[in-house]
Design a protein around this nucleic acid. Structure first.
Length: 550
RNA sequence: GCCGGGGUAGCUCAGCUUGGUUAGAGCGUACGACUCAUAAUCGUAAGGUCGCGGGCUCAAAUCCCGCCUCCGGCACCA
């Protein structure tokens, strides 16, 4: 366990809302992990930012008649709200367009240039003489050379999903006129300089996922291409050279540097030294599998290129994409569920619980299934966990006037439960440390199941002699469950905490204390009521029917 | 085509790295128990030639080879 850690989640692009896919692959695993570290007493910070620059944003902003600054500010705010509603707890949600990041990116560029990792090269680009500007990427539309679909972007055909080398019948996306080709000087990052060093780093770092590493090493063996990091565009981090007026950096040059500039800002606001803290911490970058290339190659290469002034990541937890009802998420087909919509209908903890139960520590894709969702919530979260907590607390309420009874000497089966709780805390902690979120949750459910068995076997409703000891054990075990579940279902765990009549927040407790029975005889419970409401078939069917409907 | 991951009970999956008790869990099904609890819980049972074929071995779901089959990725989309 490190003394301090910085956890980053991949930056959401500031041109659309957060949906369930984002949550499953990146933000929820990162949040659960960070919450766990905090309980373990690690000085852990979860940071993120909106990814503000780039062509698609500029085009959208122009279409909506807004300044790009205002356009991205809207999404930044909106994303932050949505994350908060789902219990994703960032210590700082900042933006790539922050002055801190702009300065940092420019400094890094200058250092890379000094270290001879940057070169200039003339490229031929589309240029619109009418609008008087270069037309990178999505500023050019035309006919897809693969499927023949009209009006597709030059860098991506949305019809067939392929990336054309050269689009047919090109047109300027702003005015519709055919562009001309014109030369422009671009800056390239010599990714190829780092092939050997990257290979060595990947091979030697046992903390990175093996399947992802193999995949990336293949790319290196095939030969890395240098990266064009320039765009002839007005919206981006300006290239800090007099001769590069009107040119900005490509988004993938600046956005992951924002992990560092944002972390540094946070630490410095707390009175610390950003660089020192970064280099003294374990660094985790949580990502989805689609951005493996950038995080396993581009990001480490750039840090190598500035002589590892900021350390390379220790972990890059990479997960697969979410499918909805066994089909790929697609906005255009409305096969898609926005986070805001979902948590306005369902308890956000239900989403977290279900997602956490299906998310594996691998690149495999996940599947969100509404029936499985309802089943897991009703049968596991409510009938198993919720029921145990509720029967333990309400029995104490009724039979012992809401006060935890004196246990006396614990019988063997009582002590066994105490040991079982301690074992579960230890094992769940190990699984969470290893990022095995789904297994960790399963381990907690196994404990809860065992507690129900215990309660059933001890029959406190008829066995009056041992009832006091049983309830003493059960209430304490419920407290342990609250702490164990706090990273997964933060809102409900807090409710459990207050029903237990405990002071403060469950999120401020120590994980290890969950292995002990800390509630003493005589302790008064809070107000007890069912923690959860069951999902009904009707509301599930309503949601299913919405999918795919336009 | 290349690379990667799967194929285990009706369904969803675990186990396979380090071969070795009657191959496990949840859901579903049948029967029973209980009543503290949101008809929740607990117990018992039925149900699998662990994709197919071959090999190594005293012993294979687990290691090796071949085949069939499904899925994903192939570069800037979490």
């Amino acid at each position: 366990m490190p003394a301090s850690a910085i956890i980053t989640s991949a930056l959401p692009y500031a041109n659309g809302e957060i949906h369930l896919g984002h949550i499953a692959s990146t933000y929820l695993p990162a949040d659960i992990f960070t919450r766990f570290l905090r309980l373990k007493g690690v000085e852990a910070y979860h940071i993120c930012a909106s990814d503000d620059f780039g062509t698609p944003i500029l085009i959208k902003a122009e279409k909506e008649g807004k300044k790009p600054e205002d356009y991205v500010a809207h999404w930044n705010r909106r994303d932050a709200e949505d994350f908060a509603a789902a219990g994703i707890s960032f210590d700082l949600f900042y933006r790539t367009s922050s002055p801190e990041n702009v300065k940092f990116v420019q400094d890094v560029f200058k250092k890379l240039k000094q270290n001879d990792h940057i070169y200039e090269h003339d490229v031929v680009q589309f240029y619109c003489e009418f609008d008087d500007k270069f037309l990178p990427d999505r500023y050019v539309v035309g006919k897809c050379p693969f499927c023949g679909a009209d009006n597709q972007y030059s860098d991506l055909c949305e019809k067939c999903g392929r990336v054309p080398d050269e689009i047919l019948e090109p047109k300027c996306a702003i005015c519709g006129r055919p562009p001309v080709k014109k030369q422009s000087t671009h800056y390239f990052f010599k990714l190829s300089n780092f092939s050997q060093e990257l290979k060595k780093w990947l091979s030697e770092n046992a903390r990175l996922q093996t399947d992802v590493k193999n995949y990336v090493i293949n790319w290196i063996n095939e030969g890395l291409q240098d990266w064009d990091i320039t765009r002839d565009l007005s919206w981006g981090v300006p290239i800090p050279l007099d001769e590069a007026k009107g040119k900005v950096f490509y988004g993938w040059f600046d956005n992951h540097l924002c992990y560092i500039s944002t972390a540094a800002k946070l630490i410095e606001e707390k009175g610390g030294d950003g660089k020192k803290f970064w280099n003294g911490s374990d660094i985790y970058h949580f990502i989805g599998k689609d951005i493996v290339y950038h995080h396993y190659l581009f990001l480490p290469a750039m840090r190598m290129g500035i002589n590892r002034e900021y350390k390379l990541p220790d972990y890059i937890p990479t997960r697969g994409h979410l499918m909805l009802q066994n089909q790929k998420i697609s906005k255009s087909r409305n096969w898609y569920i926005g986070l805001r919509d979902f948590v306005s209908v369902f308890n956000p903890d239900y989403l977290r619980f279900y997602m956490a139960s299906i998310v594996t520590y691998s690149q495999d894709d996940l599947n969100f299934d509404f029936d499985a969702f309802a089943e897991k919530i009703n049968n596991e979260l409510i009938a198993n966990v919720g029921n145990f907590v509720n029967r333990a607390l309400s029995f104490t309420q009724k039979s012992f006037a809401g006060r935890v009874p004196e246990a006396g000497t614990l019988a063997q089966d009582d002590s066994e439960i105490k040991d079982a709780v301690a074992a579960a805390v230890k094992e769940t902690g190990e699984l969470l440390s290893a990022n095995e979120t789904d297994r960790a949750l399963r381990r907690i459910l196994a404990l809860s199941n065992q507690l129900n068995q215990y309660f059933q076997k001890k029959k406190p409703w008829s066995e009056k002699d041992t009832a006091a000891a049983t309830l003493y054990v059960a209430v304490n075990a419920a407290r342990s469950l609250a702490i164990l579940l706090a990273p997964f279902i933060p809102f409900s765990a807090e409710k459990m905490w207050s029903q237990l009549g405990l002071q403060g927040s469950v999120h401020k407790q120590s994980w290890d204390s969950a292995g002990q029975f800390a509630i003493l005889a005589g302790h008064a419970l809070g107000r007890v009521e069912p923690l959860f409401k069951k999902l009904e078939a009707k509301e599930i069917e309503e949601q299913k029917a919405k999918l795919g409907r336009k």
